[in-house]
Design a protein around this nucleic acid. Sequence first.
RNA 1: GUGAAUGUAGCUCAGUUGGUUAGAGCACCGGAUUGUGGUUCCGGGGGUCGUGGGUUCAAGUCCCAUCUUUCACCCCA
Length: 454
Amino acid sequence: MAQKPTIPKGTRDFSPLVMNRRNYIFNTIEKVFKLYGFLQIETPAIENLSVLMGKYGDEGDKLLFKILNSGDFLSKVDDKLLSKKNSTEITNKISEKGLRYDLTVPFARYVVQHQNEITFPFKRYQIQPVWRADRPQKGRYREFYQCDVDIIGSNSLLNEIEIIKITDKIFSLLDLNITIKINNRKILQGIAESFNQPDKIINIAVAIDKLDKIGINKVANELKQNNINDDLIKFFKNSIANNNLSLENLKKLFSDKKSEIGLKGINELNFIKEYLSYIKLKKAKIEFDFSLARGLNYYTGAIFEVKSNDIEIGSITGGGRYDNLSEVFGLKNVSGVGISFGADRIYDVMEKLNKFPKNIETTTKILFVNFGETEEKYCLKLIDQIRDNNINAELYPSAAKLKKQISYANNKNIPYVALIGENEIAQNTITLKNMKSGEQLKVDINKLINICKS
RNA sequence: GUGAAUGUAGCUCAGUUGGUUAGAGCACCGGAUUGUGGUUCCGGGGGUCGUGGGUUCAAGUCCCAUCUUUCACCCCA
């Protein structure tokens, strides 16, 4: 036990059974992405820290995995700096690369770098792992996959509708009951502006986001601690207490305070509402929730978050519109909207609810038993023919005891076993064993192929 | 980053107020059954009890440190 190898905190190995199930999720998601006309890209696991830093808020920066410079990286650090023991300053000198934290920021970087090859609006999807130096706990890993779709280079709110449709389609295929929560950052910004604290929008958003969890009083405390003024806190307390935090109420506030951005947010939200009333969703519930904030800094318009209705776990999917993300990389006026499916959390939910179909687990359809050199040569020819018919088949690699070979088929859930020994060769036939029923038939190769195909 | 709990065989766990050689079930390997798995019976391998130190005649059991895993907060998929 002592010297057994381990893997780093928050990372996992995926065994064959788990991989089958993970691939089922990835394939379902990818199929829907393609159905809506998205094209795939990949970006490197490693990005320059200058690309990653400052995009996710202070908390996000702390959670970035940083990579040491190669070579004698300490030689550039002078003794004064070392003795100060300021980790941030020293890190800047010894690390210039990091592991990507999400797929959206690398995508924005990609768009700016490849702007001349891209036809806008650009619809891309990307399924790759991301890394966060978080403390692992339930549904939280340090390495996990995100499945992102984004449309960049179009302001149309039709894209938001499409994102909602994609989300609905994927979760209906996976047979999960979910709620899509929708809000708009412009509304939050309008609130901040209306009370003369436009710079506090992040603090306000993060505090309001906890409304469901900790209640209005604790939210009020947190707002106070962040130096949010009393007028705003009062507004919240009153409207929540009177169950009155409605679109109309907010609209009135924004009109009174002449907050253009707030009014724009309300218009955008109404657009989505109106269009959603035209189209049918298969499975998803929609909830407009003014307390939804999302921690990532870069969102500027609609924001989405998906929760499981049946399992208590953080959000399993999230996204929104970002107007200025490519601007920080030098490309102005390119707005994007996208959403990210958290494959690992979706897996956890599906496993708890037992939602994985049974038929995704079989791999090999037929095993050829190996009786020795003459027989294996004979089998090799037949097995080629079977594989040419697109049937997964394998030959046991040694003439082990029959018991062992059949157990192998049993453990691997292989439904058919072909036995070809001296007798069968002489009679030019195959003994085919059905592992479920235990039945054995003598068949020829064509019949065997037909049985395996059905 | 803050606060808690946890660690005994591949897995799930027992192990009394500290006291011989640390157990069970499942899994694995072999045999009953040399051309037949999933059932049954018999046998077998596998542990310096997370790691390092300490207390004691004696530590899986008590103390300290450290690591791991898990949970909550923060934040998030």
